[in-house]
Design a protein around this nucleic acid. Structure first.
Lengths: 146, 146
DNA sequence: AGTTTGTCTATAGAATAAGTAGACAAATAA
DNA sequence: TTATTTGTCTACTTATTCTATAGACAAACT
C-alpha cells in the first residue's frame, strides 16, 4: 500500500504542476485545496525540497514551486523518495536491494522470481510516467466538449 | 511491501507443494526447513485452512497438506488472503474497493489512473501464476545438467 | 519593528506487524 | 483407559511504522 504521505506528496506535486506558471504557492493553499493536514504536508514538502524536486522561499510572497520541469519528475521517483522501494520484497529492488532475512538461496527462490516480474512491470509504468503526463490527463478531462 | 506473514505463507505453501505426494507434513517440519517462527506459522496455517487451501489432521501422523491442486492456487489469491488487496490504493482494488478519504473526484484523479495501470499489471502476473508454476521452476533449477 | 511564511525539533497517539505463552481438543497407540 | 502426539484457540506482548500536532525559530519582505 502507498502511504498517505506518498499520496499527499503526489497530490501536492500535481497541484504545483498545475500552478507552475503562477509562481510560488503557499503550503496552506495546497493543504486546503488538496485536503491535506497542514503540518503533515509541511514535513513532506521539506522532504521533497531536500530531494531536489521543490524550491521554496520564506516570508511575505513566499511559498513553494517545482525545482525541475514536470517532464523530468517521474512518479516512480516521487514514490521512492517517500516510501522507498517499489518492489514488494527487498531482494528484487534495484535501488534499495537487501537480502531477505530467511532466504537461504536467493538464486533458487521462487517467490523472488515472481516478485521480480511484478517489480519490473511496476517500474516500467511508474518510471516512464511523469508529472507532466498526469497533468495532461486532467487538462483533457477538464476541457468542455465542443 | 509484502508482509512477512504473506511471505511465510508462500514459503509454506511452496514447501507443501513440493511434498504433495508424501502425505501430511508437520508444522514444525515446515517451520524448521523454511526458517519460520513456529507459533507464527501456526496462525498462518490455520488462516490458510479457513480460506480453503489447506487441510489438516491432528494427533499422531497428523499434519498439513494442500486442499486443492497446486495448479488451482494462484499467488495472487494467496497474497490477498493474507495481506488483502494487491492494489497500492484502495480505490483501484477490484475485490477490496474503497473510496480514498481525501479524494474529491475519483473520475478525474490522476493518481488513480497510474495506480490502476500498476494494479492491473500486477494482477495480470500474480493471478496467472500458480503454485504449480513456481514448483516447476525449482524442479528445473535442481535438475543436474546431463 | 512587525508580519508573513517556511524550518526545525520534539512528541504523541493509533494502527499494524511480528512474535510468544499456555491451556485445550482430537487422533492414535500402548 | 491412559499417554503421547499434533493441531487449535485465546490472549498477550513487543516493536515498528504511520499519521499527525505543537511550538519555538529563522528568513524575507513591508
Amino acid at each position: 500500500m502507498l502511504s498517505k504521505k506518498a499520496k499527499y506528496a503526489l497530490k501536492a506535486l500535481l497541484y504545483l504542476t498545475k500552478k507552475a506558471d503562477n509562481g510560488l504557492v503557499l503550503i496552506s493553499e495546497i493543504a486546503t485545496q488538496e485536503r491535506i493536514p497542514r503540518k503533515f504536508l509541511e514535513a513532506i514538502l521539506v522532504d521533497l525540497k531536500t530531494q531536489g524536486v521543490l524550491q521554496s522561499t520564506r516570508g511575505k510572497n513566499g511559498g513553494y514551486t517545482l525545482a525541475k520541469n514536470p517532464s523530468q519528475i517521474s512518479i516512480g521517483n516521487i514514490i521512492r523518495m517517500i516510501d522507498g522501494p517499489l518492489a514488494a520484497i527487498p531482494c528484487v529492488s534495484h535501488l534499495y536491494y537487501r537480502k531477505c532475512d530467511e532466504c537461504l538461496d536467493e538464486e533458487t527462490c521462487e517467490i523472488r522470481l515472481v516478485m521480480k516480474k511484478v517489480r519490473d512491470a511496476t517500474a516500467a509504468i511508474l518510471d516512464t510516467t511523469y508529472l507532466s503526463d498526469l497533468q495532461k490527463i486532467t487538462v483533457l478531462l477538464n476541457e468542455d466538449p465542443v
